[in-house]
Amino acid sequence: MIKSKINLPATKNGTPDWEWMEKYMKSLHHKPIRTKNSENQSLIIVNNWKEFYLHKLFKTSMGNGIDAIATTNDNPKYNYVSRDSNGNGVVGFVDEVEGQNPFPAGAMSLALGGSFLGSCFIQKEPFYTAQNVGILQEKEQLSIHTKLFISTLIRNECKIKYQAFGRELNSHFRKDFTIKLPVLMDGNDYVYDKSKKYSEKGYIPDWKYMENYIKTLPYGDRI
């Protein structure tokens, strides 16, 4: 440790900026943030939540399916996402692959099989995928907070209903994979969508509730 070095914020004089460090730590919201729309959101009540097919909420598709051995990194341009549970699933930074279109930033990757079945991440940069990775692209603009809410539910659903090397997601996530979500309410009554865009029964996901809930979590303002 005597030879170890660390990077710290510094003043113009080159000394550690102790004041900046102190102010930064005090700015962190280590307790839930309360807003006028989130007073009771720390306690989730799921009695009124309804079931939605994943393919009704997102554009679902298979990833590129590029084997790692087929990639190079002489002039890397895109993230390479695999079935991993760490680092947002990103396991490399690779060159452009001829004939393959990268998926856009903001799309969600979903591990369809293997030891980390159900790992679901929002990708911050354009990316390619390895084998057995599904893609979820929003049909309408959703905030990262809303997508984090949903990705957590997807992971939990996979732990209950699916099994690595047994009942995996390949044949389900575009067909019959469902999750329960909070829905729009008008007092004690459900708000219905006559076009049935999201649900055959006309329920509408409460995107704003999901967003606000994530924002109220400790450090939610740092996302």
Rank of each mutant, 00 (worst) to 15 (best):
K139G: 08
F149Q: 04
Y213E: 02
Y192L: 14
K3W: 15
T72A: 15
I122V: 08
M21H: 11
E96A: 12
T60N: 07
L43M: 13
N132E: 08
K196M: 10
Q41T: 13
A164Y: 06
L54I: 04
L136S: 03
K159M: 13
V183I: 12
N132P: 04
N7K: 15
T129N: 00
K194I: 15
G89I: 05
M25V: 14
Y53N: 08
A68T: 11
I66W: 00
N88Y: 08
L153T: 01
F127M: 02
K36Y: 15
H145V: 07
L184A: 05
A105S: 15
D17R: 06
T146F: 02
T11C: 05
Q131F: 02
D189C: 10
N88R: 04
E157A: 12
E22M: 09
P9N: 04
K215V: 11
R34G: 06
I179W: 04
K5S: 12
Q163D: 13
L43G: 07
N88I: 00
Y192H: 10
K197L: 13
Y80I: 03
M210P: 06
L142E: 02
E39C: 10
V97F: 08
G118P: 03
P218S: 11
N212D: 14
S199I: 13
Y198L: 05
D17A: 07
K215H: 12
Q141F: 11
M210Q: 01
S82E: 00
I223R: 10
K139Q: 09
S27W: 08
Q131R: 09
M210H: 00
I214W: 02
A105R: 07
D221E: 14
L217N: 04
G113V: 06
E19L: 11
I33P: 05
S115T: 15
Q131G: 03
Q123C: 06
N79G: 07
L142H: 00
W49H: 00
Q41E: 06
A111T: 05
K194D: 12
A105I: 08
P205Y: 03
A70T: 03
G89Y: 02
S85D: 10
Q41F: 08
M21V: 15
N88Q: 09
I179A: 03
F58S: 01
S4M: 11
G118L: 02
A70G: 00
H145E: 09
I2D: 15
S119N: 06
Q137C: 09
K180H: 10
H30F: 13
L57K: 01
N212E: 14
H172F: 07
D95N: 06
N101Y: 04
D193Y: 01
G99Y: 05
S61I: 01
K139L: 07
N64A: 09
E96G: 04
C120T: 10
Q141M: 14
L148Y: 05
P16H: 06
K201H: 13
Q141A: 13
A10F: 15
N86G: 08
E200S: 12
D67N: 15
N37S: 13
F127I: 03
L112K: 03
L148P: 01
F121S: 00
M108K: 04
Y209L: 01
L8Y: 13
M210V: 04
S171C: 09
P126C: 00
D186Y: 13
F177E: 03
Y78V: 06
D74F: 14
P205G: 07
P205S: 08
K159H: 11
Q163I: 13
T178G: 01
